[in-house]
Simulated scan of single mutants.
Amino acid sequence: MNGHPNGSSPQGAAGGRLIADTPESWDVVESRHRFKGHIIDVVTDTVRMPRDEVAERDYVVHPGAVAALALDEHDRVLLIRQYRHPTRHLMWELPAGIRDVAGEPLVETAARELAEEAGYRAETWYTLADLRSSPGMTDERVRVFLARGLTKIPDEENDFVQRHEEIGMPIEWVPLADAVEKALMGMIHNSTAVAGILAAYAASVEGFALLRPADAPEA
């Protein structure tokens, strides 16, 4: 849908607003590139708002990312700890990475990150959650997968060379219920990890039967 909103909203079967994010693009009067980096760009768009006003919106253009919530047969979540320089914190996270291989299915990207960062492979994959990490400042999309049927990759088969922040990353297996508690108590702050942990816990109530397949389309 193009143009700007007229005050109406999609309606559900019961006459209420449909609770689902929907595509929409408001008119861009001008677009200026402020910065081009190795991974991200920074852009300022002048956007036409309702009542024919215009406003500038700065945002980060990002290639997107994937994450893997690996859950073992004892319902333990695999967490890694990585230094994040912008926050000046060592943060507990899910194995994750940028969508940096053109045309690669997202589940294959997630499987590669799980293998490289944690040394595990999974037999079955499901789509757990689709996130917009910070929609007021970036177009980044993150798909979180649930990985089950885990096996350790023998060291001699894993030729990934860890560099920079990845060197010496510890791995911990945390019971899913404990991970939920740590997220709610403010002990885990990474937004993808928090969302994935809570989504997995909610999905476990139905035995994960409501999850989408790994190749589910993105909105």
Rank of each mutant, 00 (worst) to 15 (best):
D178E: 15
G186Y: 00
I188P: 15
D159H: 12
M185H: 14
F160T: 09
E181G: 02
E172T: 10
D159R: 13
W173K: 02
A183Y: 09
P170W: 05
L184A: 13
P170E: 01
M185L: 15
L176I: 08
P175A: 10
V161R: 13
L176S: 14
K182R: 11
I167L: 03
L176A: 15
N190L: 06
I171F: 02
M169P: 00
P170C: 04
V180M: 00
D178C: 01
D159P: 01
P170A: 05
P170D: 02
L176Y: 10
V161T: 09
M187E: 12
I167M: 05
Q162E: 08
I167R: 12
F160I: 03
I188H: 13
L184R: 14
G168M: 06
E165A: 11
V174R: 05
Q162I: 00
A179D: 13
F160S: 10
G168H: 09
K182Q: 11
A183F: 12
P170L: 03
K182V: 01
D178G: 02
F160H: 15
K182M: 10
E166V: 05
V161N: 11
R163K: 08
G186V: 01
E166K: 09
P175V: 09
E166F: 12
E165Y: 08
A177G: 10
E181V: 01
E172G: 04
I171Q: 14
L176R: 15
I171M: 11
W173Y: 05
E165S: 04
D159E: 07
V161M: 05
L184K: 11
A179T: 07
W173R: 03
E166M: 11
I188Q: 02
N190E: 13
H189A: 06
M169H: 10
M169G: 08
A179W: 08
K182P: 02
D159C: 04
D159Y: 04
F160M: 06
E165P: 04
M185R: 14
A179Q: 08
V174A: 07
A183I: 15
H189L: 05
I167H: 05
W173S: 07
I167V: 12
H189S: 08
V174D: 01
G186P: 00
E165C: 05
V174E: 08
M187P: 00
E181C: 01
K182W: 07
F160E: 11
P175N: 13
Q162F: 00
R163N: 04
E165L: 01
I188E: 04
E172Q: 14
L176C: 08
A179K: 07
M187Y: 07
G168Y: 07
E165R: 06
D159S: 10
V161A: 11
M169N: 14
E165V: 07
V174I: 15
H164M: 00
N190F: 00
L184W: 06
I167F: 02
D178W: 02
N190P: 04
